[in-house]
Structure formats: C-alpha cells, structure tokens
Design a protein around this nucleic acid. Structure first.
Lengths: 330, 330
DNA sequence: TAATAATAGTGGAGGGTTTCACTAGTAACA
DNA sequence: TGTTACTAGTGAAACCCTCCACTATTATTA
C-alpha cells in the first residue's frame, strides 16, 4: 500500500489540493468551518502525513548537518552528540555518523551524498586536506574539534589542551610529586600531543622527571594493561591522557593491590559523567563538552549562512577538578 | 549566496539537465569523455551539491530507518545505537533520535515525515497504541525493545528481565543475605517491572524480606541520593534496577564511609562497559546489547521486506556477572 | 544504396508540497 | 441598477531531480 499524499486528502474531502494545504498548515482561517472539518476528517481517514522531502523542497528552509564521532559507545562522544541534538534549530536535522580515519573519510562522503550543508568532525580523518578540499569546493561547511586544529579550510573549536596539561602538572607539583608517569597511546593526535607536551614542559620547568608509558590506545582496557608498568615505575603519580585510561589504570592497579591515591595518585582528562562517581572520585581535567558542542554548532550554522566569512577559531577553557584520586605528599 | 542547482551546472557546461544528472550519477558511460569532463568541471565551478530532498522525493528506492533512544549520554544506549550502525546494510541509512515519552512520540512523527520505512523504539512512548496505529496504517515497520513488550502491532526484542531479577535474587540468597533492599524509580516501565517483580518473588519464596526504596529516576545522582536511606535500612544487600543507580549508590555510600561489599553488597543491571572497571567491580546482570541491537535490526528489515508477516517476539538470555561488589555472609 | 546499429544527447513528465494570483458567488452600499 | 467589497475556494507554477522515451547524427553492414 502506498502512502497517502495530499491529493488523496483533497479527493476524499472533495476540495482542491491548495485548500488542504492551507487548512492543514493552519493558514485556513478564511475557510468555512465545515470545509475545515471535512479536511481534518479526510486526513485522519486516509492517514495522511506530509512528506518532509516535498515540503522542504518547496520551502527551501531545511538544512541537514552531519556529525562524525569515533564511536557512540563512549559517553564523552555521546554527550557531545546529545548536546548537539539539544541545541538543534527547528528546521535543521542531524545525521550522526561514527568511525575513525578511513571510516570517517567515508562517512564524510556519505554525508555529502545525502546533501548535508555542513559537517562537524570530531573523529580523526585519514586525509584531512583532501576532505577539506572536497567540502570547500562543494560549499559545504566544515567544523573540526578534537583533531586537525590547524586545517586551513575548516573552522575550529577546541579545548585548551595545553592549559589542561599544565593544570594537571601544576596540581601534581603542588602536591609534591617528584616521580611521575605520563600514560598515553603512541599515535598522538593533535589535541593529545598538546596535553602531553604541556604536561611535560611544565614538569620539566619544575625539575620533575616524567617517564612515559605507551599504551595501545585510549581505552579502559589499555589503562588496565598499563598498571603493571606503572607499578614498576615507582612513580608516585600518573597522568592519563583521558578518563578511560585513568579508570582502567586504577582498576588494573587494584588487581595488583595498589591503592589509589594511597600508593599512586592518578589524574585523568575529560571529566565524563562517570569520573565523579568513580571510586575514588577521579581528579581530572574538565572539558566543557556541551559548550564545545554548542560552539561547534554555532560556527557551522554561521558558515552555512555565509560561506565566505573568515575562518573562525576558538579555544575553550578547561578546569582541573580535584577529587579523591590524587593526594598530597607533603 | 543561494545554492547551485543542476540547472546551473547544465547551463555552465552547455548541456541539458538530463545529461548532467546521468553523468554525475555515474550512469554516463555513453557520453563522450569531453562532455563528461565539462560537466564535472562545471559542477566544481559552481559548487553544485545535489539536493537530497528532490532526489529522494523522486527515487523511492532508498531505505531510511530510525531509532529512538532516551539519551545518547548513557553508554548503554550509545552501545545499542553503535551496534545498530555497525550492522547496517549498505543501502540503508539510519536516523538517530533521542527523547522520552512526549518527545519520543514526536520523534516518531519526524521520522514518519522524513519517510522512514521502519523504526526501532527503545524509549518509552507517551501513547504507544496511537503510535503503533499510525505506523501500521502507513505500513511502517516498528520494533520495540526495553519498553512496550505487549504491544500487539510491533515486533518485540527483549532481554529476559524476569530471569535477570531472579538471578540477582538467587545470587544474594546463595550468599546468605536476609535483609535486602530493592532500589528503583517509582514509575516502572515494563522491563523494570519485570526485574523488580521477579526479584521480589524469588526473595519471597526464599523467605527473605525485601524493602523498597524509591528513587526519582535511574540516574547515578538518584543512586547517590538513596545512599542514606539504604544505610539506615540495615539491609546487607541492595539490588539496583540498573548499573547507573548501583554506581551512584556505591559512591553515595562511600561518602557515608560505608564500604561495598564489606558493609553492603550491591547488584546492578545492564553490565555497561563501566561496570567491569568500577571499583569495586560491579556484580550485575549482563544484557547482551549488541545481540539485542542486531536482532532488532533483523526483525525490522524483515518486516520492511514483508509487512504482512506474523508478529515476531524474542527474549534474549541474560547472565549474572559476579564481580567484587557482593560478598557472601556465610 | 538502403537498412540497421551504435553513439551522443535531449524533452518532459512526475514526485508532493506551497503560494501567488485569480475567480465565482454573495452581500453591502449608494 | 451598478459598483465595490468580502467570502470561500481553485489553478497552476515552482522547488530540484531522475528516468523513460525519444531524436539526430554518424558508422557499419549486406
């Protein structure tokens, strides 16, 4: 059975298509009550639902935007996407894609084909320049966050990752830690590089030695797997490049009967919803995810509005949230 | 600047609209190389992007399906949606919506307008019967999971919630707990009711008294807020209707200096990714989220294929995962 | 040479909706 | 009676695209 169109309603109510359209769109004050009733009844009788495609084809007020995150399984990205959803203007719809590197590039293609007017890219791309070129050529807006901060042809919204690394370092320095470990994966993306670099620099300035432990990726599993290495390192504190890694580390240490913060202090990065409820509460660098999302959306909509405007670029403050996973040695 | 349409490309390349359409859709083998090049150049020159509305208005061959979850912030739903994404057939696209009750009903409307062929509904609907009617009338496939198990006009994919409640109870009984508390929100949805009921029944049969503590919702915050009540109850064990509640409860108890499992045992439900890494590792009922998602998708695609087939209905096993948040009193 | 086939491209309908400009009928007015 | 003004409704273009059926031109074959 095919779907009922406005034609079917018109035929059933024995009026013209134009009449139906106006009445159903609440522009039908000028019609008689009888006609209005007939139209509404007819609509219900045939089960008519307006076709969004046809409608927005006619009124050119509809916009599709896309967002690409590495995965929806992690609450950090989930929160980002949810914030986006919550702030979405009425006439805009959102297509959510997931994937990293090659898969992310492909997701871009899909969104282009689907007719997206703009794309927010959180994932790391395999070929950022190519993607940016394509989008530019097609006049599709592009905002990056988390990765590819230096792309010329995309607006950028970032957390102050350097600030975050520094805050983490300063916190541990203030607590008197003198042997610390930096925990992260080998393939640093831009933002992670900043976190790591500024952490090390700050530590260096304070004369604290930092040893690095390389993990496979930034997952809880990797954090757990690194526990042995951390325990052997004799460090009194560890800075993990994200919360998942930190949480994994703590649970790994627990299996070795090392307690946090008594035996080692641990600092994370992100402050996802779970950080506050973890045992012990995780000391971590808070990223303002919803502000990141909101700003990305703003930038995107602005560029969709005016494709020629100058590149925009913003860095958003982070805070250190002190909880129970770190302790002062003084 | 208004967007270029296929007309602009045609004019620029000095060919007809039909030619442009065919060439850009890779159906242009029969055209000369020269013409093809001209068309591609013209497209890039005017920055043409096909209008998805017009396209899908015309072609009726593509399939759009929708999924509605309460929120993407929680990893349980994130994992569900991600699994769906991962199993999606090539020619199908997925629209992810979020919202509960009225917002979920509205999300259904949006998907219908967008021309979805099927919808997987995880959220609780405000008016399940009305929604089911509408979808049935329009021949749009509908699969429910988590809620509305008994809806006549929808295929259903569920975890064995009763089994879960029973397993949790049996575990605590085996450990010798005799005063237990059941923690959940007041407005039970179908699946939660089953969890709670079978838990209570099993306990009753074993002669164990269950007291109930009502929380505002199923969030970590609610769990935390219930800690005081749990501590006062003098129960030796608590069953929380989901992991978030359990995690919140444990962190709340910690603030009161109650230790889990030494002072109280806690059992959760869901086994989200975080349960295993929590301190202490959370004893919980494992739901096979990816199987739930896969099966939902299968059911949906089958019904899209053949709208008249008999209603399908499946219940998926759950397991109790024993970790460190419960202890035997014997 | 005539008939056929292959090549390269075009015309136009149709998909569902909105909206502007219009009409037919009636009522009010002078 | 003729003019104007409402009231209630309609016709058809336009939005952008795809695809079927068609034409015009050239090449090949018998």
């Amino acid at each position: 059975m095919k779907k009922a169109s406005i034609k079917d309603v018109a035929r059933t109510a024995d009026v013209s298509i134009a009449t139906v359209s106006q009445i159903l769109n609440n522009k039908g004050e000028r019609f008689s009550q009888a006609t209005r009733d007939r139209v509404f009844e007819a609509r219900d009788a045939v089960g008519y639902v307006p076709n969004a495609n046809a409608r927005s084809l006619k009124k050119r007020d509809y916009t599709l935007i896309g967002v690409i995150v590495p995965t929806l399984k992690l609450p950090y990205f989930g929160a980002f996407v949810q914030s986006l959803r919550d702030d979405l203007p009425e006439n805009v719809s959102l297509s959510i894609m997931s994937g990293e590197r090659e898969a992310a590039d492909e997701a871009v293609d899909r969104l282009v084909e689907a007719g997206a007017s703009g794309i927010i890219i959180v994932s790391q791309l395999a070929e950022p320049e190519t993607v940016a070129q394509t989008l530019k050529q097609r006049h599709i807006a592009m905002v990056v966050t988390e990765n590819h901060a230096n792309l010329k042809d995309a607006d950028a919204v970032f957390s102050k990752d350097r600030m975050g690394g520094r805050l983490a370092a300063e916190h541990l320095i203030a607590q008197g830690h003198e042997r610390v470990v930096l925990l992260g994966n080998q393939v640093f993306t831009d933002n992670l590089t900043y976190r790591a670099e500024s952490f090390k620099e700050t530590m260096l300035e304070a004369g604290v030695k930092v040893s690095e432990i390389t993990t496979h990726n930034l997952s809880k599993q990797s954090g757990q797997a690194a526990a042995m290495a951390v325990s052997i390192s004799k460090a009194t504190a560890a800075f993990a490049l994200n919360d998942d890694l930190a949480i994994g580390l703590i649970s790994g240490l627990a299996k070795l009967n090392w307690r946090v913060p008594d035996d080692v202090s641990v600092v994370g990065f992100d402050d996802t919803e779970y950080a506050a409820f973890y045992q012990p509460g995780l000391t971590t660098v808070h990223q303002n995810v919803s502000l990141l999302a909101q700003t990305s959306l703003n930038f995107l909509m602005q560029r969709i509005e005016n494709f020629q405007m100058a590149r925009q670029d913003i860095a958003i403050d982070v805070d250190l949230i002190e909880r129970a996973s770190t302790r002062s040695l003084k």
